[in-house]
């Protein structure tokens, strides 16, 4: 019986090939083995991985259902044994909106800065994507530590975990969106074609959140400090993002800096889509570039760091 050795770990492209063959071969082997015929498929080689690792997309695809299962688990568990249940997903952002409209809008006279738009809807249209972003970052940061038992006891592509953590924020986001629609009716904001952009903006928010979330998830495995640092970081981030104030309040020569924050362009675009005002395409484009680059860095870093997860967590 000749052995076919594939150096899978050193040539990452081959991992893909090897795995697929192993899987398809394995199904036939089980049946053949029972028939006492022996054809054990190809070798999978486990050896120290050095250098830059490629992301094993074939494996991710194989475990794709796990993404949904983990997200579903978190969603199901989230409001278990609460009296109000999923209503919390609405209560929280609405309360925030009311309090902030009062304090920032009325007392801090922010409503004079936003022109003809009613401040509550101006605020809520930004609060919504912001909350989604903030809770996605927090959830994915903590996801590795929360699931640490799984990481040390079973193999599956680790990348799935932080991505699955965005499931619950996404559901909350959808719930809170209903309130936005109600607000639009209340303030008689007419629907514009730009609302069609929202799914793309949601995707872009996930991409931005994952860029940060993946890196934070990976470092939290070693340094739990980040579990405490992240809420604080998010708070600061909130104020440098145009949520409670319009972007135009930021001085012209600081604009380039503020545009580096991917949430800046996304929130502006989200607000413009809801209110039917003109979208700042250059700002959105900048955000997209930053978000995509961030996500790529996050993916690579996480993929690189994951080799040690089970040992350090």
């Amino acid at each position: 019986m000749p052995f076919v050795t594939v150096m899978a770990r050193e040539a990452p492209v081959l991992v893909v090939v090897t795995w697929e063959k192993t899987v398809s071969a394995s199904q036939t082997t089980t049946q053949k083995a029972i028939a006492d015929e022996v054809n054990p498929g190809q070798w999978k080689v486990l050896k120290p991985r050095k250098g830059l690792q490629m992301i094993d997309f074939a494996r991710l695809w194989q475990f794709r259902e796990l993404l949904g299962m983990l997200a579903l688990r978190d969603v199901k568990v989230r409001y278990k044994q609460t009296a109000l249940g999923a209503a919390w997903a609405i209560i929280q952002p609405v309360t925030m909106m009311v309090v902030m409209s009062l304090f920032f809008g009325r007392f801090a006279k922010m409503n004079e800065q936003v022109g003809a738009v009613p401040y509550p809807i101006f605020l809520y249209a930004a609060l919504l994507p912001w909350t989604f972003f903030a809770s996605s970052v927090t959830a994915s940061t903590n996801s590795m530590v929360v699931n640490s038992r799984m990481l040390t006891k079973i193999f599956f592509p680790r990348l799935i975990v932080p991505f699955a953590a965005t499931g619950t924020p996404l559901v909350d986001y959808a719930m809170a969106f209903i309130v936005l629609l109600a607000l639009m009716v209340w303030y008689s904001v007419s629907l514009s074609w730009q609302l069609l952009l929202l799914p793309a903006l949601v995707a872009l928010t996930i991409i931005s959140a994952m860029g940060v979330g993946l890196i934070l998830a990976a470092v939290t495995v070693r340094f739990r400090d980040f579990r405490y640092l992240v809420p604080f970081m998010i708070q600061v981030w909130f104020f440098i993002t145009p949520v409670i104030y319009p972007n135009k309040m930021v001085p012209e020569n600081w604009q380039w800096l503020i545009q580096l924050n991917p949430m800046c362009g996304i929130i502006e675009a989200f607000r413009a889509s809801v209110l039917g005002t003109a979208i700042n395409w250059s700002s959105l484009g900048m955000s997209t570039v930053v978000a995509v680059v961030g996500m790529a860095i996050g993916l690579l870093y996480f993929n690189q760091a994951q080799r040690k997860f089970a040992d350090v967590i």
């Binding site: 050795t5 192993t22 899987v23 394995s26 082997t29 089980t30 054990p40 498929g41 190809q42 070798w43 999978k44 080689v45 486990l46 050896k47 120290p48």
Partner: peptide
């Protein structure tokens, strides 16, 4: 160090 080779699910 070293390596392990496995075939089969």
């Amino acid at each position: 160090s070293g390596q392990a080779k496995i075939r089969g699910r």
